[in-house]
Design a protein around this nucleic acid. Structure first.
Lengths: 340, 340
DNA sequence: TTGAAAGCGCTAACAA
DNA sequence: TTGTTAGCGCTTTCAA
C-alpha cells in the first residue's frame, strides 16, 4: 500500500491540506509544523503521487517526443543519442521528464501526437525533423499546444525553433574552400524534402554567386543520408570532364561513401580532391584521412530546445528562433589548391 | 477547454459511466448507445484524459528508463538509438509509452528511480547497464517493482533480464579463430566492473582451455570502450616477443583503435594479425579492412525487454532470462593461419 | 497559520 | 443495459 498525503496528515496530527502546503513550501506555515510533517514524511517514506498532482494542476511536467521513423530519418539516428541526452539533461534540471512514443503500425505521427496532447500526458512537444510543409507542425499550431521544432518551418514564421544557420554554415564552408584556392566546388546534397538540405544548398549557391565562381548543375548531386548515396554521387561527379577540385557533402556518413569510392578508384584525398562535410559525427574523425566537418552542436540543440519549450510552457513565449553556432573542424581531407 | 466525459455524456443524453463503458468496450452495452456515444465523441473531438484514467486505474501504461551517464557508459551510447527504437516499437504496439529521466546534478540514479516509482509515473523500469553488485537492481528488487535488466545480475538469479549469451558468444568467436588455424589468441577486454566484460572474458578463457591452447596473462589487456584503449592495447600486445596471431576485441570502436594503431605501425590486417570484435555497430563495416564482428541484436533486445516487462506488469511474471541470439559477421579482418 | 470541503476526469461497485 | 455514487490522491478556495 502506497503511503498517501492522508497517512502523513493523520500521523502528524494535521490536515491533508497542511501537508500539501509543506510539500509545496507554502510561505504561511509555521516552522514547527513544517519540521514535524517533514519528519513524518521521511519516516513513512512518502512520495507524492504525480498523477494525482498532475490531474489537479492540469500539467504533467513532461515533455513529449515522437520517435522518428527508421528508414526515413536515418539522418537523425546517428546523433539521436546525443540529442536526447541534451534534452533530458536540461529537462531533468527543471523537474521535467521526457515521454517518448511512436506511431503504431498504421497510426501515424499525427495521431500519436493528438493522443499525447489531448490525453494530457505531456505539456509540450519536441519535433525532431522539419520537412517541407510539415503536417505535424500545422497540427500543433492549430491546437495551440506548446511545441518546439528542431530545424525550421517553411510555412510558419512565428513558432519556437532551434536550428543551425544552415545557410550561413554552407556559405562558410564554401568560402573556406574558396579561401584555400578552390574555384570548382561540387555539392552532394540530402533529400530535397528536408529543409536542412534546402538551406545548405542555398548557402552553397549563394557563396559561389557572391564569389562570382562558376556553378554547374552537374556538380550538384542529391541523395539520401546514406553511404551508398555518397558512393553514387562520387562516381557521377568524378566521371565529369571538368570536375570539381573540392566537394561539400551534406553529411559525414555520405562523405564516408564518397571517400571510400574515391579510394577504390585510386584517387587520393586531399591531393586529388578535397572533401568537407557536415554534422561531425564520431565517424568523421575515424576515416582515412580524417574528415573536415562542420560541428553543429547537437547536444546543445537538444538542451536549448528543452529549455525553450519549458519556458514556453511556463511563461507562454511561443515565438522564438534560437540559432546554435556551428564551427568548421579542420582535419586532413582538405588541401589548398595551388594556382596553375 | 478540454472536452470531458461529462460533456460527452450530457450531449449524448446518457450518464458518464455509460460513456466510460463505451470507451473501454464494455460487453454489456447496446449497439445503439455505443453508436450514439461514439458519434458524439467524434463530433466533440473527445480524447480521454490519461492522467485521470491512470489515477483511478493505478497504472500509467508507461515504461521508465534512466538515461545512462555520459562518460561512464559510452558503450551503451553507440547503439542507444537502435535500442530505444526496439523498446518503443514494441511498447507502442501494446499502448505503452516510454518515459525517460536522468539523475539531476547531485541526485543519483537511485533517487530518480524512486521518484518515478513512488510518483506512479511508470509501471515498470528498464535498466540499461548491468554492473557488478548493481545497487539499482537491489533497490528495485526490494521495492518489488517490475523491472527488466539488459544484461544480467551477478547477485540476483530470479529477475527479469534480456541478455546475449556473452560467454557462449566469446567461446564461439574464439573457436572460430581456432577453426581457421589460430593458436595464439589475444583478448582486449572492457571495463572490469561491467558484467558483459566479465562474461566475454570467461568465454574466451574457457574456449582456449577446452582446446588446450596456451593462454598468457600478457595477451589479455583491459581497457575502456574507447578507441584510445584499443590503440594502447595494441601497442602493448604487439611489443610482446611471442605475440598472438589473432585478437578478440570487446567492442568495435575499440577494435577500430587497434586497427588504426596497427596500420600506423605498418602492420597489415589480416595478413599480419587477425581481428574480430563485438557489437557490430555501423562503423565496423566502414573500417579498412571491414571488421569481422559479432552481431548481438540490439533492436531485438530492446523489443524483447519491452515485451517481457509489459508481460511482467500485466501478468506478474517476474523471473525470466531471455537470451538474444548472436551471430558472427564475417568480413575481411580475419584470415586463416597456415601451419608453419 | 490551519482545516473543511469541493473538485480535477475518470472507473467501478451497486442498484435499478 | 444503464444510472448513481463514491473515490483514486492531490490542490485550493473559503472560513475559522
Amino acid at each position: 500500500m502506497p503511503v498517501t498525503i492522508k497517512d502523513v496528515a493523520k500521523e502528524a496530527g494535521v490536515s491533508p491540506s497542511t501537508v500539501s502546503r509543506v510539500i509545496s513550501n507554502h510561505p504561511r506555515i509555521s516552522p514547527q509544523t513544517t519540521a514535524k510533517v517533514k519528519k513524518i514524511m521521511d519516516e513513512l517514506g512518502y512520495h507524492p503521487n504525480m498523477l494525482a498532482k498532475s490531474l489537479v494542476m492540469q500539467k504533467s511536467k513532461t515533455l513529449g517526443i515522437i520517435l522518428p521513423r527508421p528508414a526515413e530519418e536515418l539522418f537523425v539516428n546517428l546523433f539521436f543519442s546525443e540529442f536526447i541526452r541534451g534534452i533530458v539533461a536540461q529537462a531533468s534540471r527543471i523537474g521535467y521528464d521526457l515521454l517518448m512514443t511512436s506511431g503504431v503500425t498504421q497510426m501515424d505521427e499525427a495521431d500519436a501526437i493528438t493522443k499525447l496532447v489531448k490525453g494530457k500526458k505531456v505539456d509540450g512537444i519536441i519535433i525532431l525533423t522539419s520537412r517541407k510543409k510539415d503536417p505535424v507542425i500545422k497540427l500543433l499550431q492549430e491546437m495551440k499546444f506548446p511545441f518546439v521544432v528542431i530545424g525550421r518551418s517553411d510555412e510558419f514564421e512565428n513558432i519556437l525553433s532551434v536550428d543551425n544557420d544552415n545557410i550561413k554554415a554552407a556559405t562558410d564552408v564554401t568560402n573556406y574552400l574558396i579561401s584555400i584556392g578552390h574555384k570548382r566546388i561540387g555539392f552532394v546534397s540530402g533529400p530535397a524534402h528536408l529543409i536542412v538540405s534546402q538551406d545548405r544548398l542555398t548557402g552553397y549557391t549563394e557563396a559561389l554567386k557572391a564569389a562570382q565562381l562558376e556553378t554547374k548543375p552537374e556538380w550538384i548531386v542529391e541523395g539520401e543520408f546514406l553511404q551508398e548515396s555518397g558512393y553514387l554521387a562520387m562516381s557521377s561527379i568524378m566521371s565529369l570532364e571538368n570536375r570539381p577540385s573540392a566537394l561539400i557533402v551534406t553529411d559525414d556518413l555520405v562523405a564516408y561513401g564518397v571517400l571510400r569510392g574515391l579510394t577504390e578508384l585510386g584517387y587520393k584525398v586531399p591531393e586529388d580532391i578535397s572533401i568537407i562535410s557536415f554534422n561531425n559525427i564520431t565517424i568523421s574523425e575515424l576515416t582515412n584521412p580524417p574528415l573536415n566537418s562542420v560541428e553543429i552542436g547537437i547536444y546543445q540543440m537538444g538542451y536549448t530546445a528543452s529549455q525553450l519549450l519549458i519556458r514556453s510552457i511556463e511563461d507562454g513565449v511561443d515565438s522564438k528562433r534560437e540559432l546554435i553556432p556551428h564551427r568548421i573542424i579542420t582535419r586532413q581531407s582538405c588541401a589548398p589548391l595551388l594556382e596553375k
